[in-house]
Design a protein around this nucleic acid. Sequence first.
DNA 1: GCCAACGTTGGC
DNA 2: GCCAACGTTGGC
Length: 156
Amino acid sequence: MKSEPGCFSFDDLKNRPGGVEHWDGVRNYQARNFLRNEIKVGDGVLFYHSNIAEPCIVGVAVVVREGYPDHTALDPQSDHFDPRASDENPIWFMVDVRYVAPLSPPLTRTDLSHHPVLKEMDVLKKGNRLSVQPVREQEWREVLRLGGLEFKNLGI
DNA sequence: GCCAACGTTGGC
DNA sequence: GCCAACGTTGGC
């Protein structure tokens, strides 16, 4: 999952009550489908900081609630308001995630692109704009290993 | 700040 | 259904 840290950072997630926050504001149908259909409680999340000098994967989170309607689409005061959305047809969905642990060190795009396995990650692909995207099993394992989380019991 | 890539909109 | 125009994303 990608976020601009100036908008919502990994530390922001950590500082939420219980380290839990809903992942709202996704307004792309492909990403919506992941949130609504694919993502399950207990799924691991790589938290990526985008649109900064050194974009990187900064940490790990876990899904604690599966897809449900994104209420910000119904709120005219919200930046994410969508007049087409309604209670009957919410259109947009979100999940809840909980902070788990930071990567030490974070993995920059340079790190990823130099790694035989991680250089294939979707996040590196040109033109990639999906804010929610799948990670392959071997990529997940390798990111956690490099980030010093290999032998930690993360409960994921 | 620049600009390529992408998704969406809307006229036809 | 096509496609140009537009707004947004995000690396650099």
